[in-house]
């Protein structure tokens, strides 16, 4: 079957052991106000527009014959400054495997494995399972928000070698407020992960005034106990991609007094 991805990154060094290749799945059930990959939120292909180099030549508005351009009413192949691109492409699990396996071959012993990130890879769990099946011989890792039904969660992590899971906010109400969903399901999956015996690490993005409060960090510590825990510093470039999607960075709004 086909899935939708929005990026493949070679030489990911912070996504698990060794030098890895990370596949970014498109679509996420959460909508964190600090999200720095906003093109990963919607599963649908989106038009990305870099305004910086645009000379307003208007060439992209002239009707073209490319089927991929049709939904956007813009031609993405004509811009001399490369301002337009489509984020999100459909690809089969087999096709994707074929595309990413060469990086493993190039790196040989130096290759760490593949990491599935996003967006939220569990949102396309059938596709993910098929892809995992194509990559059986490699070390596989997921970066997940942990939000999906427990059966799916169990089924997927069983087949993986390493799990990186976020616990962003310990308080259900705050989780609802800042990510759009409560954390009940996530905490339930966390217990499954813990019991699974799989190696894992918990991550918390430190967002100023939201997740980095003493209250929140103490509460997360209580939940995860002696689990390995990584706190990620706030990404200062986080808002950069919103403009390109014609969206506003929600954190900017949130932070305004």
């Amino acid at each position: 079957m086909n899935g939708t991805i929005f990026d493949i990154k070679e030489m990911a060094v912070h996504d698990g052991p060794g030098i890895r290749t990370t596949v970014f799945f498109k679509g996420c059930p959460l909508g964190c106000v600090w999200c720095h990959n906003p093109e990963g939120l919607s599963i649908k292909p989106q038009l990305m527009y870099k305004s910086k180099n645009c000379t307003n030549c208007g060439k992209c508005r002239i009707k073209c014959e490319h089927p991929e351009c049709e939904p956007f009413g813009r031609c993405i192949h004509i811009c001399p400054e490369n301002c337009l691109s489509i984020s999100g492409r459909e690809i089969s699990a087999k096709g994707l495997a074929k595309e990413i396996i060469p990086t493993a071959q190039i790196l040989g012993d130096g290759f760490g494995g593949f990491t599935f990130s996003g967006g939220e890879p569990l949102m396309q769990s059938d596709f993910l399972l098929e892809l995992i099946n194509e990559l059986k011989n490699y070390h596989l890792c997921i970066e997940t928000c942990g939000f999906c039904d427990s059966n799916t969660f169990k089924k997927v992590i069983e087949k993986l070698d390493f799990i990186i899971m976020d616990i962003k906010l310990a308080d259900n109400g705050l989780h609802q407020k800042y990510t759009g969903v409560g954390n009940g399901q996530i905490l339930e999956n966390y217990e499954i992960l813990r019991a699974s015996g799989k190696p894992y690490i918990i991550r918390t993005p430190l967002i100023s005034g939201i997740t980095d409060t003493k209250e929140n960090l103490d509460a997360i510590q209580k939940i995860i106990d002696d689990s390995k825990w990584e706190k990620l510093p706030e990404n200062t470039m986080a808002g950069a991609k919103y403009n390109m999607l014609g969206l506003e960075f929600p954190l900017k709004k949130t932070k305004q007094p």
Binding site: K9, E10, M11, P102, L107
Partner: peptide, 9 residues
């Protein structure tokens, strides 16, 4: 380019 791994290849 796809990244440094493809470049060194």
């Amino acid at each position: 380019v796809k990244g440094p791994v493809s470049v060194i290849s």
